[in-house]
Design a protein around this nucleic acid. Structure first.
Length: 349
DNA sequence: GACGTGACGGTTGAC
DNA sequence: ATGTCAACCGTCACG
């Protein structure tokens, strides 16, 4: 039996092994970093391991996205119908062509790029199973290859079922593209400060009582006002998963960073650090309620409370005024601007 | 003390 | 329906 409420890390934070941190926490990490707070302090404040903070910040810096990658599934198929068509065409044009020659031509003609070109063995398999089956005896098999039995349909890919990651672009070169910021939301929006847009969208088909739960933050903010098709597959997964696991485990999504009452090394009633306006609010607001949206100040004071972060920063900067002299603080340029990153990826309507 | 990195045990979803 | 595989996750320990 897996633990119903996750596990507790060394900092006293609760996490669910194998599952990503809630989107709000990830955002919080990035936001605090942008406020100039050092990763080690973020780690302590949010009770997330510094390795995780480091990883999330690095990912954000690299891709501009705070969201976790797609969990599970298989890599997108490279032998798309289009590729198979081309291979067949090459084979019909030149029955004696080798698989490696086909591979080269696929690259040369831009049908595939180096990331999406099928392996020689894959091409051979296609020749054997698909092209070979289509061609008249002797014609489909070049250079002494034995005749292949006429296997099934030409291209039985369950495309509708989604052989690749849902939404993962399969266009050539897509694998090399950085993940796109999935949402047109500002940080403020994402962080849970309801915008006019949000309120308007309450009438949207996505709105449901579920959305009132903090645990569905991800869905609320990335799907609620963003059409599903605007989410890349890589981004869809965490959004769904977050909802899933938080529901399935009965674990509020905030569980990933809330102090474990009576479990961690820190007493629930005392903050982790002197700066902690955070977990104090968390322990009262997160676990017991989901009113992050507009249920009141306390609810809003979960990880997404700008005020809290600013207060944190205020206290922090006082201390850092000293540190700054030694200039060990992460430069602001370390991270892309959140608002910039967000604006960058606003899907054109 | 801060932080990057890899091992580890876990989850997930396509096949 | 079930198992396998390969992606991902966060934590932890090490340097």
């Amino acid at each position: 039996m897996e633990p119903a409420f996750g596990e507790v890390n060394q900092l006293g934070g609760v996490f669910v092994n194998g599952r990503p941190l809630p989107t709000a926490v990830r955002l919080r990490i990035v936001e605090l970093a942008q406020l100039g707070i050092r990763p080690c302090d973020i780690s302590r404040q949010l009770r997330v391991s510094h390795g995780c903070v480091s990883k999330i910040l690095a990912r954000y810096q690299e891709t501009g996205s705070i969201l976790p990658g797609a969990i599970g599934g298989s890599k997108p198929r490279v032998t798309t119908p289009s590729v198979v068509r081309h291979i067949r065409a090459y084979k019909q044009r030149d029955p004696g062509i080798f698989a490696w020659e086909i591979r080269d031509r696929l690259l040369a003609e831009g049908v595939c790029d180096k990331y999406s070109v099928p392996s020689v063995s894959s091409i051979s398999r296609i020749l054997r199973n698909k092209v070979g089956a289509m061609c008249p005896a002797g014609e489909g098999q070049g250079k002494g290859r034995p005749s292949a039995p006429p296997y099934g349909p030409l291209y039985p890919y369950p495309c509708a079922k989604g052989g690749a990651h849902p939404g993962l672009p399969t266009v050539p070169g897509a694998l090399a593209l950085p993940r796109a910021w999935p949402s047109s939301h500002s940080v403020t929006d994402i962080l849970g400060i309801r915008s006019i847009t949000d309120q308007v969208n309450e009438s949207s088909p996505y709105h449901s009582p579920k959305l009132e739960e903090w645990s569905s933050l991800g869905r609320n903010h990335f799907q609620h006002s963003s059409p599903q098709h605007l989410l890349s597959g890589l981004d869809k997964s965490p959004v769904e998963a977050e909802t899933k696991y938080s529901q399935a485990h009965g674990l509020s999504a905030v569980g990933g960073f809330v102090a474990a009452p009576g479990m961690g090394p820190y007493p629930t009633t005392s903050p982790v650090s002197p700066y902690m306006t955070y977990s104090a609010a968390a322990s009262s607001g997160y676990v017991t309620g989901h009113g992050w949206q507009h249920g009141g100040g306390a609810a809003l004071a979960h990880s997404c409370d700008i005020t809290a972060s600013l207060a944190f920063k205020g206290m922090h900067t006082a201390r850092e005024a000293e540190d700054m002299k030694s200039s060990s603080k992460m430069p602001r340029s370390y991270l892309p601007s959140l608002s910039h990153a967000t604006a960058q990826h606003i899907p054109s309507a």
